[in-house]
Write a protein that binds this DNA or RNA. Structure first.
Length: 274
DNA sequence: GTCCAGGCATGCA
DNA sequence: TGCATGCATGGA
């Protein structure tokens, strides 16, 4: 990967296996929006980014090298060799054709707090509505970072709310889960940063102890927010996919189960009936 | 009107 | 341990 400054923009070339639409709009993160010019706008780690791919070059508008190194390099998982991972996953027949069709899905490294709250909200919900709820939460309770953009609300901000204030954002019965998590994080009873540094099994056990978090939400949070690429979340779509693997997951998934999962999830949503 | 969505807590066997 | 049931909301 070659990093180059051009005016106030940062240009990345030589990035393999990165599709912005497939990565930013595939149900991993809920705050990215495609603009009319085909670029993508979003907020993460309290930073706004507009990014676009042109002729194989990624243009990060108004982005300093410090923000790139401090946030976006890791957010887009740019130090991982996805081309090699995909080559390995293509040993599996279903993934072989799926990866050809949807090449470029990456696993984002989001903030633990945002990922956990987002996937608590995601349960028994659909992606369009999840995006709406999170958008309202951010616009109403997230810090204004300029230009009409808002950060994801902090645990302090959400802890200060009542359950009914959260319900007003459309969280439904999940409001009480988010309220309790925010309170516990604020009180120090739940330490997401400590969980992030644990071995996978311990981290999962810790998340399963959070009110409103079960196997599926824990796996999503661990995969998309806590850096555990071996997690393999199974939701209603993945249950349909698993019928194609009656003997369990193939060996070539080992070590990068989360990447395999995202391709299969995407395939299922596009090819299987609900 | 019914069914479904990146499920989970609860109660009961 | 495993299974049935209720749960908020909006789109199809």
């Amino acid at each position: 990967m070659i990093i180059e400054q051009k005016g106030s923009d940062l240009l990345l070339s030589g990035v393999e296996c990165m599709s912005l639409p497939l990565t930013l709009d595939c149900g991993e993160a809920f705050r990215w929006k495609m603009e009319e010019d085909g670029s993508w706008s979003g907020v993460a780690f309290e930073k706004y980014l507009n990014i676009k791919e042109e002729n194989g070059v990624f243009i990060l508008k108004n982005t300093s090298p410090e923000d790139f190194e401090g946030v976006w390099r890791r957010y887009f998982d740019l130090d991982r060799d996805y081309a090699a991972i995909c080559a390995r996953l293509k040993q599996d027949d279903l993934l072989s054709s799926t990866i050809d069709e949807y090449y470029g899905i990456r696993i984002l490294n989001q903030e633990p707090w945002e990922a956990l709250v987002s996937f608590i909200i995601s349960q028994q919900n659909n992606i369009k509505r999840i995006k709406g709820i999170i958008s309202r939460l951010c616009n109403t309770y997230g810090r204004d970072i300029g230009g009409g953009r808002h950060a994801f609300p902090t645990s302090a901000a959400l802890s200060a709310l009542t359950v009914s204030q959260l319900e007003e954002m459309g969280l439904g019965y999940r409001a009480k889960y988010v309220k309790k998590l925010a309170d516990d994080v604020e009180a120090g009873a739940t330490d997401l940063e400590a969980i992030r540094r644990m071995p996978l099994e311990d981290a999962k056990k810790a998340l399963l102890g959070v009110y409103g978090v079960g196997e599926k939400v824990a796996n999503c949070a661990l995969l998309f927010g806590f850096g555990f690429i071996r997690c393999f979340p199974v939701d209603v779509w993945m249950k349909r996919v698993l019928e194609f693997y009656p003997n369990g997951l193939p060996e070539c998934f080992e070590g990068c189960e989360g990447v395999a999962q995202q391709y299969l999830f995407h395939w299922a949503r596009n090819n299987l009936q609900g």
